[in-house]
Amino acid sequence: MNMNHDREKLGKDGSRTDPLVSLLSGLPRPSAPADLTRRVMARLSEAPRRRRRVRVWMWSPLAAAAAVCVVLLLIPHERGGGIRDAVFVLHAPQATRVELVGDFTDWHRGRLPMEGPDAAGRWSARVALPAGRYEYLFLVEDEQWVSDPLAVTHRPDGFGHRNAVVNL
């Protein structure tokens, strides 16, 4: 327990006034495994831009069927102030749910659901982004990660797959 914190929580008579501090201060503070640093550094060498764990790449027949054909159209549009509108489009007529995940969502799911499919089977999402370089993927049916085969640039994730890269 940090001493500064303890001082804040001590009463005039020197006794602890916050029962939560007393309770939590009794919990063990285990040291990190000795090889943690080595393992982190090994990861940096192998996967400098890894974003996800390898298991998310497991395909299911249902998801594979959902994304029969994948085509991305990225349409940047200058909005001013260095902000650009980018429209991401995925052709997946069989899919029932598609979302966009990338640097701009901090690789969190659920933040950029795409709209669709339209009559042509396209899903789309418009994102306003500062000019820069972004990696992204599509997530189909909450389980299939789909890269963009037509992206100008891809970046290996260190596990045999590639993130799509866009420069805005």
């Binding site: 503070r29 285990p30 040291s31 990190a32 495994p33 640093t37 982190v40 550094m41 940096l44």
Partner: peptide
Amino acid sequence: FAWLVDRHRDAVYQ
């Protein structure tokens, strides 16, 4: 970066 990890690994691990 290894130096930084060494420095903070216990706190982050805990």
